[in-house]
Design a protein around this nucleic acid. Structure first.
Length: 355
DNA sequence: AGCGTGACGGTTGAG
DNA sequence: CCCTCAACCGTCACG
C-alpha cells in the first residue's frame, strides 16, 4: 500500500471576482482558452462561459474576439522586441561572413557590414550584438543549416505552426536552454518548443500542481489530458545530474508530441499556418495541459493513492528522473523534500509505505 | 444583465 | 550580467 501526500506551497496565483485562479501577467492555460471557444461554439453566451469557467468576461470577450479574427486561441507573443538593427538581412550577412571565414571577429563583421553597405553607421549592430547573433543564431544555424531569414521552416512536427503571429527571432537563443538531445534535429518546430518552457508563473503550473493533488483533475473531466508541462517547468532549474534532466526533457518532448498527435481537439483551434517560429509553439499543444479551476476547486483534496496509470505515470516518471529517491534505512516512512528555490515552489512529498 | 473597452499592474524577452 | 522598453497578459470598472 502506498500513500503519497503532496504538499505544494505556491506563493503565486490570484483569485478573481468569480473565484477563478489566474496569474497576473500570464496567459490563461490553453485548455481554458479552448474551452471558452468550445462553449461559445455550442451557443453558450459569453457571460455564461465567464461564470462557468470563472474567467472574467473581458477575457472571454477578448479570447473570442481574437479567435474570430485570427482563428487561433493562442495568446500573443509576450516579451521581446522587434529587431531594430539585427534584421533578417543583417543576420544573413553575418551568417555569410561567418561561414566564409569561421574565425572572423565580431568587430571585423561590423566593419564588413559597413563596407558592404549592408548597414550604415546608424544602424550597424554593435559588436556585442553581433557576438550575440553569432552565439545565439549563427551558432545554431551552423548546426541546423536551414535558417532562412524571416522565412519559417516547414514544420516537421504538427505542433509547430500554431502561432498566428510571426516571431522573427524565435529561432534560437533558447535552444541552448532546452539543450536538445544530441542528434535531434533542431527544426523551427523545435525552436518553438524550446521557447515553450512555461513560465513558473503560469496558471498551468499552479493548476498543474493542484492537478497533481486531484485525481479527478488528472483524469481530466473535460477530456483534456494533463501533461508534463508543469513538471517540465519545475525541472527548469538545472539539476546536478544532467542525466536526469535530459531524461525529463526528452519525456517532455515526447509527451508534447504524443499529446498533439492524439489531440484532434486542439488542432481545430490553432490554424495550420506557416508561422513555425513560435513563442508558444508548444504551449499550444501543451494547451490541453490543464485542468482548470472549476474542476479542482469544487472538489475536496484527495490523496493520490497510487502513482500509476495515465498521465500520472508520466509525472511519476519525471519525479524519479528529477530527484534521487532515498529510502531511509529504518522505518517505512519516506519523506522527500524537494525544494526548488529558484522558482520558489516548494514541494514536500511524503510517501507512506506500509509493508 | 450583457458586452465592449480602456486603465492598470503584472510578466516576458530582444536589444 | 543588468537594464530598458515595448510587446503581451487577465482583471476590473465603467459606460
Amino acid at each position: 500500500m502506498l500513500f503519497v501526500v503532496v504538499f505544494a506551497e505556491q506563493p503565486y496565483g490570484e483569485v478573481n471576482q468569480l473565484g477563478g485562479v489566474f496569474v497576473n501577467g500570464r496567459p490563461l492555460p490553453n485548455a481554458v482558452r479552448i474551452r471558452i471557444v468550445e462553449l461559445a461554439q455550442l451557443g453558450i453566451r459569453p457571460c455564461d462561459i465567464s461564470r462557468q469557467l470563472r474567467v472574467s468576461h473581458g477575457c472571454v470577450s477578448k479570447i473570442l474576439a481574437r479567435y474570430n479574427e485570427t482563428g487561433s486561441i493562442l495568446p500573443g507573443a509576450i516579451g521581446g522586441s522587434k529587431p531594430r538593427v539585427t534584421t533578417p538581412n543583417v543576420v544573413k550577412s553575418i551568417r555569410d561572413y561567418k561561414q566564409s571565414d569561421p574565425g572572423i571577429f565580431a568587430w571585423e563583421i561590423r566593419d564588413r557590414l559597413l563596407a558592404d553597405a549592408v548597414c550604415d553607421k546608424y544602424n550597424v549592430p554593435s559588436v556585442s550584438s553581433i557576438s550575440r547573433i553569432l552565439r545565439n543564431k549563427i551558432g545554431n544555424l551552423s548546426q541546423q543549416g536551414q535558417y532562412e531569414s524571416g522565412k519559417p521552416s516547414p514544420p516537421q512536427l504538427s505542433y509547430s505552426p500554431v502561432y498566428p503571429y510571426s516571431y522573427p527571432n524565435a529561432g534560437s537563443p533558447s535552444s541552448a536552454k532546452l539543450g536538445s538531445p544530441p542528434g535531434m534535429a533542431v527544426t523551427a518546430g523545435h525552436m518553438g518548443l524550446s521557447r515553450a518552457w512555461p513560465s513558473v508563473h503560469t496558471v498551468s503550473n499552479i493548476l498543474g500542481i493542484r492537478a497533481f493533488m486531484e485525481p479527478s483533475a488528472i483524469a481530466g473531466p473535460e477530456g483534456y489530458q494533463p501533461k508534463m508541462e508543469e513538471w517540465a517547468s519545475v525541472n527548469r532549474t538545472p539539476f546536478p545530474s544532467s542525466h536526469g534532466l535530459n531524461g525529463i526533457e526528452k519525456s517532455t518532448l515526447e509527451t508534447d508530441i504524443k499529446y498533439n498527435q492524439s489531440s484532434a481537439n486542439l488542432a481545430g483551434y490553432v490554424p495550420a499556418c506557416a508561422y513555425s517560429a513560435s513563442q508558444y509553439g508548444v504551449s499550444a499543444c501543451s494547451g490541453a495541459s490543464g485542468t482548470y479551476a472549476p474542476h479542482w476547486q469544487s472538489q475536496a483534496s484527495g490523496g493520490l493513492s497510487h502513482a500509476g496509470g495515465g498521465a500520472m505515470g508520466q509525472h511519476g516518471h519525471s519525479l524519479h528522473s528529477a530527484m534521487a529517491f532515498k529510502r531511509p534505512t529504518h522505518g517505512n516512512l519516506v519523506i522527500l523534500t524537494f525544494r526548488e528555490s529558484d522558482i520558489r515552489i516548494k514541494f514536500i512529498i511524503t510517501i507512506y509505505l506500509s509493508f
